[in-house]
């Protein structure tokens, strides 16, 4: 249906852009003799990733668990809450402003509190990753479930469809493009949320590694860790894009 061109896909164009950026970075660092501790060239970072791989992989695992857990939890709750909003406008009027107000609380400030409440295990990190995924999905999904055109609703009414049938057969599928644009945001932000949560009170995870490498002044390892974090976030994003192509084949890029 959809021609597989370069224009809409993040694949080919994105890779080319990345390659150009890395080449410029490598050349720039060499040309201006930038000291290693300020900005190592990509090749150095790459070799550091290779050298540190067992360490990086060991610490990527908890981060991955937290990010995926937070992604599922945050988006799941957001989708359910949006479905409640659409069917109970009174609940939406009461809860939505509170949700938006909560959103303005900086997550970095929330982290110590969550550590106090939830301990030092996976729970507080998953909670942070969930919170960071939650809000964009709640906003988008509420819009998506409500964005049904009047004629489709009239049609379902004349067929005597129940509210449940309308939700499952019409509202849910027609909101999928909205859901996926939120999930693309959540895929990257849940990784970042997990990493930030690991900065405090953690002895493992990529976030912990960032802090440890900084304290020990292992600049190359710091950059190697950052590279792995970016790769994870990018992988999450690409997975969501691929899932969208599978699940929403009737619409192109939103």
């Amino acid at each position: 249906m959809r021609p597989g061109g370069v224009s809409g896909s993040p694949g080919a164009g994105g890779l080319l852009g990345l390659a150009v950026l890395l080449a410029a970075w490598e050349a720039g660092v060499a040309l201006f003799a930038v000291p290693l501790y300020l900005l190592p060239p990509p090749s150095t970072i790459w070799w550091q990733v290779v050298r540190d791989w067992p360490l990086l992989w060991r610490n990527a695992q908890p981060t991955l668990v937290e990010a995926v857990g937070g992604f599922v939890l945050g988006n799941g709750v957001a989708v359910l809450l949006a479905a409640v909003f659409v069917h109970a406008p009174a609940v939406q009027r009461a809860v939505f402003p509170v949700a938006i107000a909560l959103r303005t609380v900086p997550l970095v400030a929330l982290t110590p509190l969550l550590l106090l409440w939830l301990g030092t295990g996976y729970a507080p990190k998953i909670a942070i990753a969930a919170l960071i995924s939650f809000f964009p999905t709640l906003v988008n999904m509420t819009r998506g479930l409500a964005a049904l055109d009047g004629q489709a609703l009239e049609l379902m009414h004349t067929m005597s469809a129940s509210r449940w049938q309308i939700l499952v057969k019409v509202r849910w599928p027609s909101s999928l493009p909205y859901l996926f644009s939120a999930l693309k945001i959540a895929a990257t932000s849940s990784v970042l949320g997990a990493v930030i949560a690991e900065w405090i009170g953690s002895d493992r995870g990529l976030g912990y590694l960032v802090v440890a490498a900084t304290f020990e002044f292992r600049i190359a390892r710091l950059w190697a860790t950052i590279a792995v974090v970016s790769a994870l976030a990018l992988a999450g994003y690409l997975l969501v894009v691929a899932a969208e192509r599978l699940v929403v084949p009737w619409r192109g890029d939103v």
Binding site: Q151, A152, E154, L155, T158, K169, V170, P173, S174, L176, V248, P249, W250, R251
Partner: peptide, 11 residues
């Protein structure tokens, strides 16, 4: 009922 717009579900 049939409308001017066919109102088919695109998926």
């Amino acid at each position: 009922v049939a409308f001017q717009d066919p109102v088919l579900l695109p998926w």
